[in-house]
Design a protein around this nucleic acid. Structure first.
Lengths: 133, 133
DNA sequence: TATCGCGTTAGAATTAGTCTATACTTCGCA
DNA sequence: TGCGAAGTATAGACTAATTCTAACGCGATA
């Protein structure tokens, strides 16, 4: 994903492109992946860029509020951010912690009950936990 | 759920029934519900029973390892424990944090891809996030 | 009674994430 | 060019859930 693509995606989501936000986006959006705040900070440090912890957290919160990335709560001890935002599902290897995307297009769910009164659906996510056989 | 039922369920899952474990089980298993460690500690205190924080955590870990309860990772800031262990799904109200069970029996999922090589399925969970409309 | 093993405990340690108060940047405008 | 406001970034203090540690209790068994 080129720098120009990054800039476009930030603008599309009403995120003004500061240099720190661009750096975080470059790390997270460069390819489909799931990273925690900590991993992003480490990666930024490796790349020699200096973005503070607070800014990384602020930025991730902003990105997910604006739909640029999705929060992923599989590992109970940390929050992961998913660079793939269109609806999709996950394999989660409980032994390794590895998280893999499942595209949504062919998946159909039938027989769900209706939603509780006065509520509407925000998302439907399937999580398939797997382990080595 | 009677005290005898509690004892049976502990035994069925190879958990030796100490008095602290029985007390935690009485709180958590008394009816279908989702509780955090903290909520369990509060409840125990209300009931006048004195079980240490460390023991509650140890006990919940043991229970879930032995399949007596299920961990529920919806709220990224704390772990919930689900007294319903047979396969089922959840509505999660993102505004209130309320978690509601969806029985599995009528739900069918089609079109899932095959599992990654060398892995087997441990569970399939659907999480439907809802908000007030 | 001595000891062994398991469970429990208080409190310290850890750690992801949040908050606070300060400083920097940008930009409109006189 | 200078100034102020708004928006951002930052270090470091703080919070809260969970884990760890090291000591203690206690029943069973030799």
């Amino acid at each position: 994903m080129s720098r120009q693509d990054i800039l476009n995606r930030l603008r599309e989501h009403d995120v003004s492109p500061t240099s720190q936000r661009i750096e975080v986006a470059e790390v997270l959006l460069s390819r489909p992946q799931h990273l925690s705040a900590d991993q992003i900070i480490d990666r930024l440090n490796e790349l020699g860029s200096r973005v503070s912890k607070a800014t990384v957290y602020n930025t991730l919160k902003l990105f997910s509020k604006n739909g640029l990335v999705k929060e992923c709560n599989v590992d109970p001890s940390r929050r992961y951010y998913d660079s793939t935002t269109h609806a999709h599902h996950h394999f989660y290897n409980v032994e390794t912690g590895e998280l893999t995307d499942i595209p949504e297009d062919r998946v159909t769910i039938m027989g769900l009950p209706r939603l509780p009164n006065g509520t509407e659906r925000e998302s439907v996510e399937i999580l398939i936990k797997i382990k080595s056989s």
